[in-house]
Design a protein around this nucleic acid. Sequence first.
DNA 1: GCATTATTTAATGCATACGCAAATAGATGC
DNA 2: GCATCTATTTGCGTATGCATTAAATAATGC
Lengths: 225, 225
Amino acid sequence: MKQQDVKPQSNTQRAIEAMRQMIFAGDLPAGSDHLESELAEQLGMSRTPIREAALTLEGQGLLEMRPRKGVRILPVSPDDMREIYDVLTELESLAAKQAAKRRPSHADLAPLAKAITDMDAALAAGALEDWADADERFHKELVRLGGNSRVRMIVNMLSDQVRRARMITLHMRPIPVKSNEDHRAVFDAIKSGDGDQAHIIHRAHRQAAKDLIVGLLEKHKLSRV
Amino acid sequence: MKQQDVKPQSNTQRAIEAMRQMIFAGDLPAGSDHLESELAEQLGMSRTPIREAALTLEGQGLLEMRPRKGVRILPVSPDDMREIYDVLTELESLAAKQAAKRRPSHADLAPLAKAITDMDAALAAGALEDWADADERFHKELVRLGGNSRVRMIVNMLSDQVRRARMITLHMRPIPVKSNEDHRAVFDAIKSGDGDQAHIIHRAHRQAAKDLIVGLLEKHKLSRV
DNA sequence: GCATTATTTAATGCATACGCAAATAGATGC
DNA sequence: GCATCTATTTGCGTATGCATTAAATAATGC
């Protein structure tokens, strides 16, 4: 097994990673404010690397630095979700089309195939968290296969922004059987080199996901998650 | 006339603005390296705000911080241009479609209309820089009308990344007469509420721009601008 | 009491200092 | 000459301190 990127070596990198995890885990809840000095103390470092990390995460759209009010964790509203999913729809379906055009080898497609079988397995086992994990891997692999590094970066950034909302709605939504079918259809289209088909299916897949999640958020009055 | 955003008051903001301008103006050429301390001296401030500005601009894809090698101004290759224009194509044509669907009022459309007449005027006067300026306003207004703030931010970011290349090729390309026709057609489609038409025309417009500019860069062996 | 002004508090923006590690130059051996 | 090892330099990462200024609180006038 190949070694993952070696653990971040600078305090700034550690702060970025730690704060990301704290945001996703809910330790820093959406909408909450945090003084730089508090975060510094929590993470056992000075304000300098905290500030640098906050600047970086601000660029990623995860938080906002407001003078004297502290670092605010940005909440995501249903309208935000719509915006984000609309972008994801365009860019991921572009990636799907371009992935198909590149006629990827069997080896290239392996991670995508694995994500699909993992999703099936997770679903069969009723392990929703595992399903969500594999689902994320699928989308990540898809944009990697698309071959456009800007698309990859933007999609990853936006995926981070909606991660909390996806986790929250994970247990409200119906079992994502249709979703797995979609993934498989996209995969088949890419494998057979049919870019237009991959594009069409994936677009519909993402639009359906948008409607589902936005609907759930609104139904449950989750105006800011 | 309403007052523009008051000039940035913090040194960090000033550094961001100054470095952006220096990058666009070529004072910090593509591919060049610059020590933090040099930039600090140039801008008359300490390293701290320079580092914060660099972090921000790194997030915007304009430069890269490499320990001990200094801040490197990221060059843009023809492949980069292809990537960026592909994203711009998708997101701007989405914006065009959604702008049409929103049935904007005459007042909403005014800035877009002005950008178009300005382009015509600039072209008639042979003022290419003015044309480029109005062209940028058109695209900026278009994504504003689209109403998706993520699209707006991403498009603005990518536009910054390709600004140098666009300026360089500005005087190599044929007079952009067709481009003006396209803009007008997009405008008409939006005005008449025909989202699909706006989408189709704008997409073709952007793809043509991509082919043109990438072709010019490659023809002139401009592998990194 | 209420509004307005003065005072205090405290978080930030930034300058500065310093140790560490990387890069470079220099020394040594072969 | 060339390689290897050592010394030196230098740029960065980070801690720290402080002036500034927004926010909070108290004080004052009406």
